[in-house]
Write a protein that binds this DNA or RNA. Sequence first.
DNA 1: TTGAAAGCGCTAACAC
DNA 2: GTGTTAGCGCTTTCAA
Lengths: 366, 366
Amino acid sequence: MPRQLRTPAGVKSANGRGPGSTRRLPILSDVAHEAAVSLTTASRALDPDSTHPVADRTRARILAVAARLAYRPNPMARALRTRRVPTIAIVVHDISDPYFAEIVRGATAAASARGFLTVVCSSDRDPMTELQYVEMLCLSRVSGVIFAGGGLDEAQYRQRMSGYARSIAHYGGAIVALAPRSEHWPAEVPANRTGARLVTEHLLSLGHVRIAMISGPSTLFTSRERELGYLGAMKAAGVEPRIERADFTIAGGADATARLLSAGPPTAMFVASDTMALGALAEMRRRGIGVPSYVSVAGFDDIPGLEFIDPRLTTVHVPMAELGAAGVARLLRHLDDGDLNTRTNHHPVQLVVRESTGRPREVSLY
Amino acid sequence: MPRQLRTPAGVKSANGRGPGSTRRLPILSDVAHEAAVSLTTASRALDPDSTHPVADRTRARILAVAARLAYRPNPMARALRTRRVPTIAIVVHDISDPYFAEIVRGATAAASARGFLTVVCSSDRDPMTELQYVEMLCLSRVSGVIFAGGGLDEAQYRQRMSGYARSIAHYGGAIVALAPRSEHWPAEVPANRTGARLVTEHLLSLGHVRIAMISGPSTLFTSRERELGYLGAMKAAGVEPRIERADFTIAGGADATARLLSAGPPTAMFVASDTMALGALAEMRRRGIGVPSYVSVAGFDDIPGLEFIDPRLTTVHVPMAELGAAGVARLLRHLDDGDLNTRTNHHPVQLVVRESTGRPREVSLY
DNA sequence: TTGAAAGCGCTAACAC
DNA sequence: GTGTTAGCGCTTTCAA
C-alpha cells in the first residue's frame, strides 16, 4: 500500500476489524508529517543520544507531536538497523530454585528501569538445554546474556559455548557471568571461597572435627570454589575433609545425606547450597536425627523463606538480587560505554548463624 | 554498502576486529546465491509452514546449502515483516513466589519447544509496574502475553489494561489468562472455587466451627473466587464466616494471623495461598501456638518445597506447571490456527491432607 | 541545521 | 514452480 493512501494514525481505520479493533500505532512518519519535518529530523530529535544538532524550536515541535500521538519507536525496526534487540537474557539452571528466582528478580527490575525486556531461560540443570537456549539467544540478537549459573568444565560444552559467545561478541552483544566460569567474561560473583571458609571455621570453632561437605557436581566451577574454601579451612585446622556430591537439588541433598549417614556419620555438615540443605534436613527428620543435637547443618546462599523452615538454617548470605542488578549494570556499561573490561568483581558474603548448628554431640550415633 | 561488495559469509572478514572476531552470520541472500535461486524461492523452501509449492530438487538443494552454511533466519527482519516477534511474555505478580516460578517453568519449557523465547515480567505486586510492563510488551510486538496473576477490579487499571489488550489484538498478538479476570480473554484457570469449598468442607468435617479465612486483596478476582468457595461451604454448614485480608505475601500472612489471633481466635484457618500460610505458621511458632493442636491451618496451591516445612501443610494442589504449559498451548492455537475462542478452561484441583489440620482443640486458648 | 535516499534481512503480492 | 518487486519502520550516510 503506498504511504499516501495509508490510514493516518489517530484516525479510526475505515475497515475496522470489529469491536475489538482500534487505530493503529503511530509511526515515525506520522510524527514527521504532523510536525512538517523529514523522517531524518524527526528521528534525530527523538533519539535521546543522537549528537546531531537539531534546532530547539524544531525539536520542541517534534517532541510535542510525538507526545500527543503517544509515539513510541518500533523496537523491531530499530533492531533491524542497530542489529540488536533491546532485550537482555538471563540464563539460569532452575527458575524454581529461590536462589535463581531472586537473581532474576533483581535483574529484571534493573533492566526494565532502562527499557530492556528480560528473557529468562531455565535449563533445568541440563547443559544441552542450556546450550540450545544460548543458540536461540544468539540468533535472536539479544543485546546481552547474563549467565546466573556456574559453567561446566566439559570439553564439548566449553567449545560450543565459546562459539556462541564469539557470535554474540561479533554482533556487539554483551555477556556477563554471575558465577565462576572458565571463560574470561566480565563477572559479578559471590565470594564463594571466603563464604565456604567462614562457615567451615564456624563449625570448627564449635568443636566439630568430623565435618563433611555436600558439594555439587565436580565439573561445576561453583562447586570447586566452595570446596576450596572448605578444604582450606579443614587443612588449616589439621582435620580430615570428606566430600560427598549431589546435584544442587533438594532430592540430591537428601540422597547425599543418606549416603553420608550410612558410612561413619559426621557431627557436622556444610552443604554447598541452601536448596540441598533443605533436602539434608528432610532426610534427618525422616531418620529421626536431631539437628543440631546430633548433626549440625550449615547451608550457603541464604535463600528467601528460610525463616519458615525448622530448624532455622545457619548459612552464608549471598546478595542475590544485588548480584542480578550488578550483572545488568555491568552489561549496560559494555553496551553504553563500550566497557570491555573482563574483571571479576567479588561480592561480599556474610556468615549468618542460626539454629541448625551447635556443639558436637557427646554420644555416638550408632 | 552494495550487496556485491559485501564480504561473503563463511569467508573471514578482511577487517577482522581482533581475536574475538569471526565470520559474519549467513543471510538469506547467501543461501539463495549459493543455491542459484531467487530470494523468494529460498525463503519459501526454508519456511516450514509455507504452502507455496517448491520443486523437491530445488528444495533439497536449498536446504543442503542452508545446512552447510548453518543459516538461521534473522528474527528481527522476519519480525519487521510479519509484525510480530517470536517471543511470548508471561506477566507474574512475583517471580520469587514458588507458585509463579512453577508456572513460568512450565510455560518456558512449552514455549521453547516451539522455538519461542519467553520474557518474564514480575510486577512485585504493583499494578502500575504491571501496566508499564504490558505497555513495553505491546510496543515490542510480542506474539503473545500470558497473565499468570489475577486481574484487579479497579477502574483505571481495567481501562489501561483493555487499551493495551486492544493494541495487542490489533497487531495479531494473542492473550491468555491463567487466573480470573474481568476481561473476556481465553483462560486456563485452576478451579479456585471448588478448591476453596473442598478445603473448607475438610475443616468442617474435622469438627471445626470457628473457621476463619485469610484471603487476598478484595480487588483481586482470585481472592473473590476462593472466598466464594469458602463462603458457600460455610453457609451450607450454617456457620458464621470470618474473613481477614492480606496481600498474598509471607509477611502479609503473618500479620493477618496476628490480627485474627488477637480478636477471638478461630480453631481453624483457611489461608488463600501457601505463601501466606507460611507466614501464618511462622506467626504461630513465634507465639508458641501449636499447629494443628490449637489451630488448624490449611493453604492453597501446593507449592514445591512444602515437604520441608513443619508441620507439613494441608493444602489444595494446583497443577502449576501444567497451567503454564496449557497457557502456551492455548496461545499457540490462536497464533497457528486463528482460534479466537475465549472460553475459560477450569483445571481440576485436589485436596491434599497433611499434618497441619486436625480436630479442634478442647481447651480455650485464652 | 535539514533532507533525500539507501538500505537492515526478510516476506508476500503479483506476475510469468 | 520460480522470479520480480515493493516494502515492514527505522537509522544513517551523504549532500545541500
